[in-house]
Design a protein around this nucleic acid. Structure first.
Lengths: 223, 223
DNA sequence: CGGCGTGTTGATCGGTTTCAAGGAAGGTGG
DNA sequence: CCACCTTCCTTGAAACCGATCAACACGCCG
C-alpha cells in the first residue's frame, strides 16, 4: 500500500473534554493514535462505582487490532486530537509491516506492565502514597516528552529542578483512578501543600519544587 | 523449522509449590506454556507489602516474546508443569507462523483486559465482594476446562449444579491477590460459610451449592 | 507428645468514607 | 458590569470497614 493510498484513508479527529471516544460494547471500525491530550479508559458498575483503568498519552493507540472490542469506555480527559485509521486499513498495514506489528505488540506489553504496576498501587498503597504516585506519573508524562503543558511559566528560576504542570484530571477523576473518594484526594493534596511537597494554583496547576521529596513522600512517610 | 527440530529443543519442567519460576529482574532465556497447575505473578515492595497481579492457568504462556523482562516475579502457586522453548526457538517460530503470533497477541490482550478488570475489584469492591469475586474466578477456571481438581467427589448428587474445587491459594495468597489481610479473607470465608453460600472442608476444599447465590453475594448484599 | 505452620476468631484501633456545609471559579443573563 | 447559578473543590465531624494486635485451634510431622 503506497503512502498516498494510506493518506487517503487516514483522518483527524478532535474530541472535546468529556467526549466518549470509544464505547466498550460496540465493535469499533477504526483505530487511532493520540496526537495530543489525555484519554482515560474506565469501567463503571451498575450501581455507579467507577474505576479508571488506564490513562493514555500522545503516541499511544486507542482501540485494538482486529477490532476486538474491549469492555472499557474510552473518554477524553482533556481535549484530544486523534489520527484515525479505518480498521481494515490498519489490519492491512499490520500484515504488511512486521515493524508496525512489533510496535503494537510492544505497546500492548507495556500497557500490561503498567496495569499490573497500578494494581499494586490500588491494592497495597495508602491514600497518601496513592496521590503521590499519581502526581509522579503526571510529572513524568507531562514534563519529559509530552506535548502537554510543561513549564507553563518562565524558564526555571526558583529551584533548579522545579517542575510545573497542569493536571489533566479533575479531583473526581483522580479519585476514580486511585480507588479513593474525592474528599480523600483533596485532603491529601492539601496535606502535601501544607508540607511544602507541592504548591497548587487553582486546583489544577501543580508545582513540584523537589521531585525527590515527592518521591519520598510517596513511600511510607507520615506527616 | 521441522517438527523434529522443534521437539529437540523443547523440554518439560516441573516446579513444586512455592518455587520461583521466573525472576522479573533477569533476562529470561526461555518461554513456557503451563501444562498443569497455577502460577502467580507478583510484585513485592521493599517494606514487604505484596500484591499478586495475575494468576495463570494451563494453556497460558509464562515469560514473554523477545525476552523482554517484566518487573514481576513468577512463582508456582501449586505444583506446576511447564513446556519450555528456548527464547530463540520461540522467536523463530513466531516469525515463521502468523498463527502463533496471533495466539500470542490475543492472549496478551486478554491478560490486559483481565488485569484491568481486576483493577476494578481492587479499587472499588468491598472485602465481601472481593472474596466472592475470587471464588467465582476459581470456580470458572477449575471447573470448565481446567485439568485441575473439579468434582473431586462423586457425580453431582446433592444440588443439580453444585461445584466442588480445591483452592490453589493459601489464605495469604488470596489476601495478596485481593489487597486485603489474611484475617479479613478468613472472616469473609467464615461469613459465607455461615450464610450457606459455600461449604468448606479443611481450609482449601470449597463447595459452592449455588453459583448464582455466590454471584449475588458478590454484588453488594450484606449479611 | 510437642512444635511449627496455617487458619480462625475476638477486641480494639485508625484510616478512609460518608455526611454536611461552605468557598472559589466560570458562565449567563439582566 | 454585576448578581446569580452551577460546578468543582475544600474542610469539618462522625461513622464504619478493614487493619492490627492477640490468643487460640487444627493438622502435620518429627
Amino acid at each position: 500500500m503506497s503512502d498516498q493510498t494510506v493518506q487517503r484513508y487516514v483522518h483527524r479527529r478532535r474530541a472535546p473534554t468529556g467526549k466518549v471516544i470509544l464505547d466498550g460494547d460496540e465493535q469499533p471500525t477504526w483505530i487511532g493514535i493520540i496526537l495530543g491530550g489525555v484519554v482515560k479508559l474506565m469501567k463503571t458498575s451498575e450501581d455507579g462505582r467507577r474505576q479508571i483503568v488506564a490513562l493514555q498519552f500522545p503516541g499511544q493507540f486507542v482501540g485494538r487490532p482486529q477490532g476486538k472490542p474491549s469492555p472499557f469506555l474510552a473518554e477524553a480527559a482533556t481535549d484530544v486530537e486523534l489520527c484515525c485509521f479505518p480498521m481494515s486499513t490498519f489490519d492491512t498495514l499490520m500484515r504488511e509491516s512486521r515493524a508496525l506489528e512489533q510496535v503494537v505488540m510492544n505497546q500492548t506489553l507495556e500497557e500490561l506492565d503498567l496495569a499490573r504496576e497500578w494494581m499494586f498501587v490500588l491494592g497495597r498503597k495508602t491514600a497518601q502514597e496513592k496521590v503521590a504516585s499519581l502526581l509522579l506519573l503526571m510529572a513524568h508524562h507531562l514534563s519529559a516528552g509530552g506535548d502537554h503543558a510543561c513549564a507553563a511559566g518562565a524558564p526555571p528560576d526558583k529551584k533548579e529542578n522545579a517542575l510545573v504542570f497542569e493536571l489533566p484530571l479533575s479531583r473526581a477523576e483522580m479519585a476514580d483512578y486511585l480507588g479513593l473518594t474525592i474528599e480523600t484526594v483533596s485532603r491529601q493534596m492539601s496535606n502535601m501543600k501544607t508540607n511544602g511537597i507541592i504548591a497548587i494554583k487553582g486546583a489544577r496547576m501543580v508545582t513540584v519544587p523537589d521531585i525527590a521529596a515527592l518521591q519520598a513522600w510517596g513511600e511510607q512517610a507520615q506527616a
